[in-house]
């Protein structure tokens, strides 16, 4: 019933995005630690984040967080809402729809000023 179907794939992506976000969180704690050392250190590092590769990665990260958040709402609904399991299919389409509805426009907004391959 579950294996190989939509629920399993959403679960796989929930794990992958979760691990990815945590990996970035470690990097992000480390780079923010440089704020305590002074502007020379911090500004030199955040310069990296302005490169187009990192701007693209930033959009992917926003996607990972959005997916994890929206699918997390679905998981909570499946766990606590009486009709959650019954409405499985609608929740799956709702999850993917809401995710794309937020992520794609965010991409246009976040990437519009990026100087590609510079």
């Amino acid at each position: 019933m579950y294996r190989g179907q939509s629920g399993m794939w959403l679960w796989v992506f929930h794990r992958l995005t979760g691990v990815g976000i945590l990996a970035f969180l470690f990097l992000h704690v480390a780079d923010t630690y440089l704020v305590g050392l002074g502007p020379e250190y911090y500004n030199e590092l955040v310069f990296l984040y302005k490169l187009w590769v990192f701007r693209l990665a930033e959009w992917l990260l926003v996607g990972a967080v959005l997916y994890h958040a929206i699918n997390g709402i679905r998981v909570v609904l499946m766990d606590f809402w009486e009709s959650g399991v019954e409405r499985h299919t609608q929740l799956v389409f709702g999850t993917l729809g809401l995710f794309l509805l937020l992520w794609l426009p965010a991409g246009i907004f976040m990437l519009k000023d990026v100087k590609w391959f510079a």
Binding site: V35, G38, P39, N43, Y49, K50, R55, V65, L66, F109
Partner: peptide, 18 residues
């Protein structure tokens, strides 16, 4: 996400911002 990546972005985030 909204404050640091949509309203602001990495172009404006630096030591003074923080």
């Amino acid at each position: 996400l909204v404050v640091m990546h949509l309203i602001n972005n990495v172009e404006v985030i630096n030591y003074d911002f923080v």
